[in-house]
Design a protein around this nucleic acid. Structure first.
Lengths: 213, 213
DNA sequence: CAAGTTATCAATAGAATGCTTGAATAGCAA
DNA sequence: TTGCTATTCAAGCATTCTATTGATAACTTG
């Protein structure tokens, strides 16, 4: 019995597979795109994806000559988010690694607060993920400025309003980096807690709540 | 970065370790007791427990000549519960294994409904886990009848009222078995969805909500 | 201190994983 | 059909995991 569940646990037991899950949480992708983004051979990527498929974590669909993988459901995003949250709080090592990788912690803004301020309009929301991920889905009202273009496109951001940056999630470095650069340029900036997947999830919940009410 | 998180995922990647987590979700235990309950050597149990410790999933405390392990926090129970839920829905294999192991599905009762009916008092709640686990913590108002003693102690259960049985959790066979036996004896019986850990968790949430309100 | 218990360590053998390489397959387009 | 591309399969090797065994360390009790 536990053996069958452990097969699912194994999906989350390899750094490469976690990287794939994290990317797929942004939206569906083909094998090649995933191989590219994670910097591994496509044969290896394919193998890991099959492991994830066997564990029931992802779905796949043939599209002509390529195969598009996607997370198997919102509850998988939820699980991945929970794993990250617990790992963050629990393992000293993760914290250390996070500090090394993400750099100095930056100030965050909660989802609820951002939602409220988006309604009143006194905030500029910037999505600093790569283009593809923005196109696959993003927070309504966000502007796409991939982190690499931030310096040159700084002028596009109106002065005066506070800037909020977001990216893939808790352990994605882009938004951290963006906030630091914006602050260095004298702009008031914060990072959204979590990332697009968490936002999407929370959104789904509040809209279904509305429906239920 | 993902490497550090994967170390935590590995905690959930072995059936033996899952068995330990499931037991620890019922309450703290010593190495020997865990080795006993899972039927493995204490050396091996100790090794797995150390792996869990390294992953930040459990805590430990020396008590004289023995060491008592416990889950590191309620969020670990939450994670374990989420893993089980998702595994249950997602992997066909789990379902098959569950049917083999748990037998015919039995009717369940939701936590909210049970809570309501406990207040009005028209239900008998039976904890069919081993004594130790009942003593380590149980649902308020429950009677302890370990599954092995159910047949001989049937008379203790008042007739007329519906009987609800519960045990360790979603994949624990005791409550299933109990409900089948009770029904065979002509008693109206259902199984509580989830188990003691889930109840405890939900309880904590509603009491903190009450506090917050 | 000596005896006895509980937990951990150390070493080992066998099994399972992970990654690489090169070949095979499925679909598309000419 | 013949090429071409994206993905999967198969084999092989290095690494890591797992469970067992027997020894060692930590602690209690007499």
């Amino acid at each position: 019995m536990f053996e069958a569940i452990a097969r699912m646990g194994k999906a989350f037991a390899s750094p490469r597979r976690l990287a794939l899950i994290d990317l797929l949480a942004q939206g569906p992708r083909t094998v090649e795109a995933l191989a590219d983004a994670t910097g591994q051979s496509s044969a290896n990527t394919s193998q890991h994806l099959q492991a994830l498929y066997a564990a029931g974590v992802v779905e796949r669909r043939r599209e002509g000559t390529r195969v598009r993988y996607a997370l198997a459901g919102d509850d998988v995003i939820e699980l991945w988010s929970a794993v990250q949250a617990i790992a963050a709080g629990r393992i000293a090592e993760v914290e250390r690694a996070a500090r090394d990788y993400l750099g100095e912690p930056v100030e965050t803004i909660a989802r609820e607060e951002l939602a409220a301020r988006l309604r009143t309009g006194d905030v500029v929301l910037v999505d600093v993920r790569p283009d593809v991920e923005f196109e696959a889905g993003h927070i309504e009202g966000a502007v796409s400025i991939p982190i690499g273009q931030l310096a040159e496109r700084l002028a596009e951001l109106p002065e005066g309003a506070e800037i909020v940056a977001y990216c893939r999630g808790r352990f994605c470095a882009y938004a951290h980096e963006a906030v630091r650069r914006l602050r260095a340029a004298g702009r008031p900036a914060r990072r959204l807690e979590g990332g697009w997947p968490e936002w999407k999830l929370a959104q789904g919940e509040t809209t279904t709540e509305r429906r239920a009410a």
